[in-house]
Design a protein around this nucleic acid. Structure first.
Length: 586
RNA sequence: GCGCCCGUAGCUCAGCUGGAUAGAGCGUCGGCCUCCGGAGCCGAAGGUCAGAGGUUCGAAUCCUCUCGGGCGCGCCA
């Protein structure tokens, strides 16, 4: 509808240009927007006010000329000039009746748009280190990323969801070493667990599995493990030096083959946990992309080589630096350390080079806001590689704080209380978690109120929306109990029966759905959809309270049911995009 | 110190690429079930859009500065 009106106004402007009433060289985009106030009609256009200066005419007068040049359109009932120079359009009731027919015809596909034109977009999200279970912060990235991806699908993009697995690097070595130490404990050893090791309960559990599988095959005496190591933090030493020496000792005593066995055991155990956690949360990926594979396939080396050949690297103090300042970064960055090892950043450059080479027209990275300082250097690297950094969109998700009983829950890993996504899901349920996470735009800090998310009451927006869906299902059950069926054909042909104000509100709200999908998708803002669904549910509940649907007269009854069933469809479609279920009863 | 994000009703937040009297939920106060599910509906009170300048027909929205809050500034990932 919006697009149709835009074309209409554009035609009128062109007519005026042809007639010499407007300059021929106007650069403008016709904007049609929904009116905030129904007294201003359904849609408004501000083009006359924008053009007034160039056309050297008063806005209202110009608006009047545009109106007289407008071609007729069947679904437009009235056009008028209002306020400072708005052109207001009032639609004919038939325009809204068509929406109901469209919904019934398209079903699950209603609201899908073609703006994406099948363009390939990659969405990378969560990508948490596989060194432990996901926590509630990752949950927000998961819910947000999944919703953005599904919105893009609905908007006609071809979406590739990806999880970047940091399965290389020091953190993973620390995990492997931690795991082995816990394994040794299961073998009966007593040892001083390093300050910088992973102390979580899950490491002990995985170690138990490892012990069950390997028996004592990987056992070495603790005394040999800890002999002649630099002291740990607790003993007045440096925890970093201690853990690094411990990692080296671990490899030495086990040999590479057994070390790798432990490393892979830990990696796959945690990755399996993350994968199933996300799956249960309704978050699935097209690909899990391994950091190690960048090395195995020579991609990391190739990226460095390209930068070197382009003259973007230089050597200083034994390390290789990337001239990111040349592309606006605040300082140059190390890509190859003094010890010859590539940095995480070097791998990330290679990963993003590979993303571009895979031919995505648009790449979206969803990161925690604490990584924001990282954006300029990645974009710099893309520029140096000859790619267009604008193809990469980095969406930064702010932190979520949990509240219970009005108190903020401390979220440090050490506190050990209620930090995992799994625990959150268990406490409030997947639906509430998905919906709450997506209720705020990503750059907004989020206060996640556990009591509210759990409450099965009027305060909880999730249940409010779901209840609308369940209520409609219940109405249909009532219909069946009365021995009646909905006459689809009569319902769709008797839509003119819908003359109540509440019906009009519901019709208008339904007609907005495709626009909401499109704008929410292009802006990467699933919260727009969440708010819309609340509005739609409210329009329905209000209608429900004001009028009975199961009335005696068949034409009116069937028309009302057509409207209500269309509402159910849109609720289900919208909730589906957000990963929330649409229950038939609750 | 520098950089990024945020500052709208008592609380939590919307406000679409600047648009016509600033919205919602919760909370507070007052109403509505012989009727399709009261997990619902209706109504009332409540804001100098942090502050100050600027841009223009028009600013919560764009620009600059100030104040306040969060986060980041590793040869960690």
């Amino acid at each position: 509808m919006k697009h149709a009106l835009e074309k209409l106004v554009a035609q009128a402007v062109t007519r005026l240009q042809d007639a010499g009433e407007l300059p021929a060289d106007l650069a403008l985009e016709i904007q049609i927007e929904r009116t905030r106030d129904r007294r201003h009609g359904d849609f408004a256009c501000n083009v006359a006010m924008i053009l007034a200066r160039q056309a050297r005419r008063a806005p209202r007068e110009l608006a009047q000329r545009i109106v007289s040049a407008l071609p007729a359109m069947e679904t437009v009932a009235a056009v008028e000039v209002a306020g400072p120079g708005f052109i207001n359009f009032r639609l004919a009731p038939s325009a809204y009746h068509q929406v109901v027919r469209d919904i019934h015809a398209a079903g699950e596909a209603f609201g899908r748009s073609t703006v994406g034109q099948g363009r390939r977009v990659q969405v990378e999200f969560v990508s948490a280190n596989p060194t432990g279970p996901l926590h509630v912060g990752h949950g927000r990235g998961a819910a947000y990323g999944a919703a953005v991806a599904d919105l893009l699908v609905a908007a006609g993009f071809q979406v590739h969801r990806e999880y970047y697995v940091n399965d290389a690097g020091r953190q993973m070595d620390i995990l492997a070493t931690s795991l082995w130490l816990r394994y040794l404990e299961h073998c009966g050893e007593t040892l001083p667990f390093p300050a910088n090791g992973y102390r979580g309960r899950y490491v002990i559990d995985i170690a138990a599995d490892l012990h069950a599988r390997e028996g004592r095959a990987l056992h070495r005496p603790a005394a040999r493990v800890f002999a002649d190591l630099p002291p740990d933090e607790g003993a007045g030493g440096d925890k970093e030096a201690h853990i690094d020496a411990l990692i080296a000792r671990c490899r030495e005593l086990l040999g590479e083959a057994d070390y790798e066995k432990i490393f892979d055991f830990g990696l796959s155990a945690i990755l399996d946990d993350i994968r199933s956690d996300l799956e249960e949360f309704g978050v699935v990926y097209e690909a899990w992309y391994s950091e190690r594979s960048l090395l195995e396939r020579g991609i990391a080396q190739r990226a460095i080589e390209r930068l070197k050949q382009g003259g973007f690297l230089y050597e200083r103090e034994g390390a290789w630096w990337f001239r990111s300042t040349q592309f606006g970064d605040e300082k140059d960055r190390v890509v190859i350390r003094e010890n010859g090892q590539a940095t995480y950043f070097a791998h990330d450059i290679a990963y993003h080079m590979d993303k571009m080479e895979r031919g995505f027209e648009r790449v979206i990275d969803i990161w925690g806001a604490d990584h924001h300082g990282y954006v300029p250097r990645i974009k710099a690297a893309l520029a140096a590689l000859g790619d267009d950094p604008r193809r990469l969109d980095v969406l930064l998700v702010q932190f979520a704080s949990l509240y219970r009983g009005g108190e903020k829950i401390p979220m440090s890993t050490r506190s050990g209380q209620f930090v995992t996504l799994r625990e959150l899901r268990r406490e409030v349920g997947n639906d509430a978690a998905r919906f709450f996470y997506v209720l705020r735009k990503c750059e907004q800090h989020m206060d996640f109120d556990l009591d509210l998310a759990k409450s099965q009451s009027t305060d909880n927006p999730v249940y409010y929306v779901q209840y609308a869906h369940a209520r409609i299902c219940s109405v249909m059950r009532q219909l069946a109990e009365q021995g009646l069926v909905w006459d689809r054909e009569q319902g769709l042909s008797e839509l003119r029966q819908l003359v109540e104000e509440h019906e009009e509100t519901l019709l208008v709200t339904l007609s907005r759905y495709p626009e909401v999908i499109e704008t929410a998708a292009l802006a990467h803002e699933p919260h727009q959809l969440a708010y819309y669904l609340r509005e739609l549910a409210q329009a329905f509940h209000t209608y429900y309270n004001a009028h009975a649907f199961l009335v005696e007269a068949p034409p009116l009854r069937n028309a009302r049911l057509a409207l209500v069933l269309a509402t159910r469809q849109v609720l289900a479609n919208g909730l589906g995009i957000l990963g929330v279920s649409a229950p038939e009863a609750m």
